[in-house]
Simulated assay, not measured.
Amino acid sequence: MVGILTIHALVQQAIESGYLTLAVEAQLRRLSQHQRSRENIYALMKLQRGVMEGEVKQESHQSRYQQVANVGQDAESA
Rank of each mutant, 00 (worst) to 15 (best):
H61T: 08
A23I: 11
S63V: 10
V2Y: 05
H8W: 01
I7V: 06
S77P: 03
T21Q: 00
M1E: 08
K46Q: 11
V56L: 03
L5I: 14
L20M: 03
S37D: 05
S37C: 00
N40K: 00
H34Q: 14
A14Q: 10
G50S: 02
L10Y: 00
A23N: 09
A43D: 04
I7G: 00
Y19C: 10
S32E: 03
R38Q: 15
N70A: 15
Q48M: 07
S77I: 03
V51Y: 00
R49F: 12
V2S: 10
N40Q: 00
I7D: 00
G3Q: 12
Q35G: 00
L22I: 11
Q58N: 12
A9Y: 07
Q62Y: 09
T21C: 01
G54A: 03
K46M: 09
Q73E: 11
N40D: 03
Q27K: 13
Q27F: 02
M1T: 08
L10K: 01
V11G: 06
I7N: 01
G18L: 03
Y19S: 06
S60L: 12
L22V: 14
N40A: 11
Q35L: 06
V68F: 13
V24K: 13
L47N: 06
T21F: 01
Q67T: 14
V11L: 04
A26K: 10
S63C: 13
I15F: 02
V11S: 10
G72N: 13
Q67E: 07
T6M: 02
E55A: 06
E25P: 04
V2T: 13
L20C: 03
R29W: 00
N40S: 04
R29V: 00
Y65A: 13
V2N: 06
G72P: 11
E39C: 08
V68H: 11
N70H: 08
E53D: 13
Q62A: 07
S32R: 05
Q73W: 04
S60I: 12
L5N: 15
E16S: 14
A23H: 09
G50M: 04
A23V: 00
I4M: 06
E25F: 08
